[in-house]
Design a protein around this nucleic acid. Structure first.
Lengths: 229, 229
DNA sequence: GCAAAAGTGTTAGACATACACCCATGT
DNA sequence: ACATGGGTGTATGTCTAACACTTTTGC
């Protein structure tokens, strides 16, 4: 009925990073080979015959960019005929979050260069990677509302204002400092440390740490986080 | 670096139906051929070389079961090596909702039989289809909370109690009739009709109709539905 | 002493929840 | 007349949202 199938399977990763100075960024590589040689693109590539999808993304990310993500989840699969000029390729896109400060970028194999690009300044990309990124951004915004996504993006110890700023950036609007803090502290998965930090002028800020154990406890008890404001 | 890839791409569909008498069901087919000959399985099959993923699911569904779904969204892609005993197969699973009363089931091509199975009585299934269904059920429960999913599952005109019962079934607990009605009516995307219906004993019930236009209006205005109770 | 960022409580209104009786019909 | 399912309002408490001044530091 159907002619012998000749479709390739690939994976791609949209990895987000956050920097209190520069905002939200995405990890992109510059392609070394055709097609789209020298274009910026998402890290990714073909899946090995005996490799799981997730292993494939992690491998490609490490090879092409030197990043080993903490948080990784499947985003969506893209498979319209024609999205790759060579063969029919179905790609399973993944969504990742990292602290950029944890890694030093290193382009290898298929990548000629790697860099973080602010989400407001994404260059023209190879294939349909722009559409994949748009979907990832929507997902990131959506996750904000019911999961404390931010903690994967911030340093292990961070001043409360970093969390505030991250949320303001992602939501694209101001939030009320007092109400936000009340709510987050109320959940009880943040620990206040004795240390303080001072980054520019102004009063030094206490540092906080995410208590994942407490968070997981609350979540398994069916607790519902509602982090909008 | 990687040996010539030999992975096949398939699609599978988890289609939910609701019947006020029998509850939530899933559409399953009985396989005509090996492997898992005569096992129950999700409708699905290999993707054609020039066919989009969604076209492939719709085609397979129509061929194997005679059902042409209204509502269809991508669920998740499953690709662990070994999930198909013959070749490596990556399957893109879809999630669908239909009104069972709209269709007459008809098994064709690879299917020897088709039937609705209540979600509490799913037989042993081929491949990893059980895991796919579990994920689909989780998704269905999740969607409940923020989208009026129910309307895809109910008849075009339905008594309010059908909606109540659907929610009770999906949530697995009782809900307060008065509060539920207040909330739903408050959103304004339901139209009360003049007709009434009487199914057994008791006072006849007014029929309602979902006003999709109004719903889409509200949604684009960024309205947030919160349908828990 | 002034600019910059951190820290902190109260109040009013909106929304969620809990709760019980009457109505229209079939048998 | 009784059994069955449909229909409706109010009161209470909880959560959300709005709002501004003081503290600590660098310059």
């Amino acid at each position: 009925m159907i002619m012998k199938q000749s479709i390739k399977v690939a994976v791609d990763a949209v990895v987000f990073g956050y920097d209190p100075e520069k905002g939200i960024s995405i990890l992109l590589i510059r392609r070394k080979y055709e097609p789209f040689q020298k274009s910026w693109a998402l890290p990714g590539g073909l899946v090995g015959n005996d490799e799981s999808l997730e292993d494939a993304v992690r491998r490609e990310l490490l090879e092409e960019s030197g990043v080993d993500v903490h948080y990784l989840e499947q985003l969506y699969s893209f498979g319209k005929p024609g999205r790759d000029p060579r063969n029919r390729v179905v790609t399973v896109a993944y969504f990742g979050l990292v602290r950029p400060s944890d890694y030093q970028l290193a382009a290898q194999t298929d990548a000629e260069d790697v860099a973080w690009h602010g989400i407001a300044q994404i260059p023209r990309l190879a294939f349909d990677h722009r559409a994949i990124i748009d979907m990832a951004i929507t997902r990131l915004r959506g996750k904000l509302a019911y999961e404390p996504v931010g903690f994967e993006l911030l340093d292990k110890k961070f001043p409360f204002s970093d969390l505030e700023n991250l949320y303001q950036t992602l939501l694209g609007r101001e939030i009320d400092r007092r109400n936000f803090k009340k709510k987050i502290i109320g959940y009880g998965f943040l620990e206040e440390l004795d240390e303080t930090i001072q980054r520019k002028a102004g009063r030094p800020a206490h540092l906080y740490r995410f208590n994942k154990k407490k968070y997981d406890e609350l979540k398994t008890k069916g607790y519902n986080f509602d982090l909008f404001l």
